[in-house]
Simulated scan of single mutants.
Amino acid sequence: MTTLVLSQLLNGVQYGVLLFLLAAGLTLVFGIMSFVNLTHGSLYMLGAYFGATAYNHTSSFLLAIVAAVGGCIIVGIILERTAVSRLYSRDHLDHVLVTFGLLLFFNEMAQIIWGTQPYFLPVPSWLDSTVNLFGITYPSYRFAIIVAGLLAAVGSYWLIHKTRLGMLIRAGSVNPQMIGALGINIKFLNALLFGVGAALAGLAGVMAGPILSVQSGMGEPVLITTLVVIVIGGIGSVSGAFYAALVVGIVDTLGRAFLPMLLREVMARDLANAAGPAIASMLIYVLMAVVLAIRPQGLFAGAKK
């Protein structure tokens, strides 16, 4: 039983760091630029497709990562310059309507280019093994996702808190007019920030490729969960997104693993197997509702960014 609990905890952490890769970029764009970007899920999907296509042509997972991250940066910057930048002065409803339309466009475009059948990105051979963690064997690739997510978290913290660019980003989130008056190109800063968010989404997509099927529309479910992470962690807080992503990942994973087992003690096995996953899928939304009731600004909004 201990082995099962530890294994599921690691799965929860792995899911959490994938959520963080998405949430970090989205919370920066939402919290700093005050832009609701529903196309973030499409960038995640495109990262998976770019990575799978590159791997099928080169058989190199490292090149697949480069293609996913680079491709999403290009798409993100083009998207920001051609569409998003025109909406900064509009209200959030316009943001939602336009980016939802773009999300549908990218889903249809993916079906036209890659077809309706799922793509599969295999686990690279050099990670197709296991590692020993806390006395249990754990897939090397899932452990690599955890490491990649932690490195992204450290890199995001360094970028925001230890660099001049991060200083400008933090200042721009408080008073963008003053930053512009001081001669800083706020348009370039916004495009760069959007590109960073797109890069993290692409990295999340290509890392998720070997454990999920790559298909059109794969970004919507994870986008909803990512928005839950942002609400729990605090809008605009990268550190909050990290902690909240871990909490959501662990709660969701443990709920799906152990709720059916617990329910079998009080109801029929078939009913427990059906009710367990359904209740588990509700847990993160119940958690979000509790957080909104107790601390509407988010659990970790005190140390913003």
Rank of each mutant, 00 (worst) to 15 (best):
L121C: 01
A181T: 12
S125M: 06
V214E: 05
W114V: 07
A201Q: 07
W158F: 15
N132S: 14
F120A: 14
G172P: 08
V147K: 01
V147I: 15
L150I: 15
M178S: 13
G205M: 02
G209N: 03
D128I: 00
V222T: 14
T226R: 05
A153F: 15
G115R: 11
F194A: 09
T226D: 09
V174Q: 15
T116G: 05
R164C: 01
A181K: 04
Q215I: 07
Y141T: 11
S140L: 11
T130Q: 14
G149S: 00
I232C: 06
M207W: 10
N185L: 04
L159Q: 00
T137L: 13
M207K: 06
G166P: 05
L182F: 04
T225H: 12
R142L: 13
G217M: 10
V123M: 03
L203M: 02
L127W: 06
I145D: 09
G135I: 02
Q215Y: 08
T116V: 12
S239C: 08
A199V: 03
W126Q: 09
I235R: 05
P124K: 01
A241F: 10
R142Q: 13
G172R: 12
R142G: 01
K187L: 10
N132Q: 07
F188T: 14
T225D: 14
S156G: 13
V154C: 04
T163M: 11
V123S: 00
